[in-house]
């Protein structure tokens, strides 16, 4: 669909004719997107345009009504595909963190590796401490999530999502629930991930950040991709009326 498909990188995510309805309400009305290995794609758009729904279709947190979604070589719309296997390749970070309050910070991160028998408890803890190092929270390993600030919670959530060593990371408004002074620390972690070459899809309201970090920006409106392109093109020289209208409101 977009100009970026000409890039040589192999496709990590391919979305074809994706449709999603809640009852009679069609929220996604035929989406086509291709995202290459190591690419960072930011999704922007007005509230209710279907950004979260698109993201949640990528790891099948939402049932897909029609079309195809291929992630890391798995067709997630194929009922024979083990969705749990696919999800191990895709980390997800939520707006409201969704940390497990009855576990310590380290236990939150160790849960998946231990339960999915990818590591012993000791190995998983060691790995958890390394991940916490990466997000700058090693000293909080044995704290309860409730004792952390919002920014710290989100950094732990990112560490948790990285625990299964996913090749793709999805972020749904990871900084929207944060106090402004904490946004920076979380963005820094995401920036580091981008620098390491992680394939990422970010739904965000931080236009500055999208411009800075995105290899590509996708503008969604009313359940379709309205316009997409390199950040400097989309922000500097939008082609569609809807895009111009939206940008004039948020910039």
């Amino acid at each position: 669909m977009s100009a970026s498909t000409v890039e040589a990188k192999p496709a990590k995510i391919t979305v074809n004719g994706l449709r999603k309805s809640f009852g009679s309400n069609e929220v996604l009305k035929g989406i086509d997107v291709e995202i290459g290995e190591g690419e960072v794609v930011c999704i922007i758009g007005p509230s209710g345009s279907g950004k979260s729904t698109l993201l949640r279709c990528l790891n099948k947190l939402e049932e897909i009504s029609a079309g195809h979604v291929v992630v890391d070589g798995f067709d997630v719309t194929d009922p024979k595909v083990d969705i749990n296997e696919v999800r191990r390749h895709v980390g997800m970070v939520f707006q409201h963190f969704n940390l497990f309050p009855h576990m310590s910070v380290a236990e939150n991160i160790m849960l998946a590796p231990v339960e999915l028998k990818k590591a012993t408890k000791a190995e998983a803890r060691e790995q958890a401490l390394k991940l916490l190092d990466r997000v700058g929270l090693r000293e909080k390993a044995d704290a309860r999530p409730a004792s952390l600030s919002g920014g710290q919670k989100q950094r732990v959530a990112i560490a948790r999502a990285l625990a299964m060593s996913p090749g793709i990371m999805l972020f749904d408004e990871a900084t929207s629930a944060l106090d402004p002074e904490m946004v920076g620390e979380v963005l820094q972690v995401i920036r580091d991930l981008a620098a390491e070459g992680m394939t990422m899809v970010l739904v965000t309201h931080e236009m500055g950040f999208a411009k800075e970090i995105g290899d590509r920006v996708v503008f969604m409106a009313d359940g379709v991709v309205c316009e997409s392109g390199k950040p400097e093109d989309l922000f500097g020289n939008p082609q569609q009326e809807r895009t111009k209208e939206f940008l004039s409101k948020v910039l």
Binding site: N59, L61, N84, E85, V86, R87, R88, V90, G91, M92, F94, H96, N98, L99, F100, L111, A112, E115, L116, A157, R160, A161, A163, M164
Partner: peptide, 13 residues
């Protein structure tokens, strides 16, 4: 919170 189940499912459990 349903987000708890979603977070766990998204980890592949």
């Amino acid at each position: 919170d349903p987000g708890q189940l979603e977070a766990s499912r998204s980890l592949g459990l």
